[in-house]
Simulated scan of single mutants.
Amino acid sequence: MTKIWIDAGHGGKDSGATGNGLVEKNWVLSVANQLQSELVKAGFEVGMTRTNDTFYELSDRAKKANSFKADLFISIHFNAGGGKGFEDYIYTSTPAGTVESQKIIHKNIIAKITKHGMRDRGMKRANFAVLRETAMDAILLEAGFCDSSDATILAKKAYQTDFCAGIISGVQELFGTPVTKYRAGKYLTSNDAISGKNIKGYLEAGTKVFVYKETAKTLNLTTTKGVPGSWVLKTEVNTGKR
């Protein structure tokens, strides 16, 4: 099973950035807990640096993720310093695969959060310890600036939910969407999946799939990334109804 490590920045004696009533250590922990819950529902194994208001040194954060043997490390933060917008970072010297991971995660987050008015500050690189000392692909996310007009956006629950949704979409594009609990019926068309007619087979529990296309009620799941697959009803994935 694909392993994702969530690093909620700061904690304990380290409050992180503050402004307009927002405290970074509290905001990122709330988002991290929401993200953990949603990733587990999506079929990923998730480890976390912290689940409460605890301080960890930067090197310890990397060590915990390395011991977990995570496939991806995601560090969650927000910014201060007078700017505006979302940005993300990977290590200054990094493999091509990490660069591609950054592109995919950045694209998916931006697709979810721009409707809230959050500016795209782009993809960047930095010599941050949690990026340098982790053994897997690692990305650090800066969700916005708490000391600018971004604070109004950051405070909205809808923004936090969409921020998480963007991360999840990026992770699913990178690793696929494991169907972990039960089997889902495979249908030729979206309408077949809705009606329950013309079933062609099943996606067995544990099948690693990618989302090729999505409608309000159905998913086109494929075992080969980028290639059309078969349709399933969203409500039947991991329920074993058919």
Rank of each mutant, 00 (worst) to 15 (best):
167 I>E: 07
187 Y>W: 04
185 G>M: 12
21 G>A: 03
228 P>L: 07
201 G>I: 15
154 L>R: 11
79 N>E: 07
218 T>M: 11
59 S>W: 07
123 M>E: 07
144 G>T: 14
124 K>V: 12
64 K>W: 00
93 S>D: 10
204 E>N: 15
129 A>S: 13
204 E>W: 12
30 S>N: 06
209 V>Y: 08
160 Q>T: 00
126 A>W: 04
238 N>W: 05
18 T>M: 06
7 D>T: 09
123 M>N: 03
180 T>Y: 06
64 K>C: 00
130 V>F: 00
33 N>R: 15
9 G>K: 08
102 Q>P: 02
196 G>E: 08
221 L>S: 12
190 S>Y: 08
134 T>M: 08
153 I>S: 04
112 K>I: 09
80 A>V: 13
212 Y>H: 14
117 G>M: 05
42 A>F: 02
161 T>N: 01
85 G>N: 10
183 R>G: 14
154 L>I: 06
221 L>P: 03
235 T>W: 07
215 T>F: 01
228 P>Y: 12
167 I>S: 02
148 S>E: 08
186 K>W: 02
204 E>D: 13
176 G>E: 10
80 A>F: 04
59 S>I: 06
30 S>T: 08
219 L>S: 12
92 T>S: 03
133 E>Q: 14
165 A>S: 14
19 G>N: 04
204 E>G: 06
184 A>E: 11
151 A>N: 01
62 A>G: 08
34 Q>R: 15
128 F>T: 00
21 G>T: 02
131 L>V: 00
179 V>Y: 05
131 L>N: 02
171 V>A: 09
187 Y>A: 11
238 N>A: 02
142 E>W: 03
130 V>Q: 01
200 K>F: 02
117 G>L: 07
84 K>Y: 11
136 M>C: 00
148 S>V: 10
113 I>L: 14
69 K>M: 15
232 V>A: 06
212 Y>T: 10
183 R>S: 12
57 E>Q: 03
237 V>F: 03
137 D>H: 01
205 A>M: 06
57 E>D: 07
160 Q>V: 04
27 W>D: 15
98 T>F: 00
146 C>Q: 09
145 F>S: 05
57 E>H: 07
124 K>M: 01
45 E>A: 02
125 R>G: 08
113 I>N: 04
141 L>A: 03
176 G>W: 00
164 C>D: 00
215 T>W: 09
226 G>Y: 05
187 Y>S: 08
38 E>V: 07
130 V>K: 02
58 L>Y: 04
74 I>N: 08
100 E>Y: 11
184 A>Q: 14
53 D>Q: 15
200 K>Y: 05
76 I>V: 13
58 L>F: 03
214 E>W: 09
63 K>D: 13
222 T>A: 09
29 L>T: 11
184 A>G: 13
221 L>V: 09
51 T>Q: 12
178 P>L: 15
169 S>C: 07
30 S>H: 11
241 K>T: 13
239 T>E: 03
180 T>W: 11
195 S>A: 14
38 E>S: 14
127 N>L: 10
207 T>P: 02
226 G>F: 06
36 Q>P: 02
242 R>S: 05
222 T>D: 05
154 L>Y: 05
195 S>V: 10
37 S>D: 05
141 L>R: 01
115 K>A: 12
202 Y>T: 15
233 L>Y: 05
223 T>E: 13
119 R>I: 15
11 G>P: 01
204 E>P: 04
146 C>Y: 10
82 G>I: 07
74 I>Q: 08
194 I>F: 11
30 S>V: 08
132 R>W: 01
10 H>K: 09
106 H>W: 11
149 S>H: 10
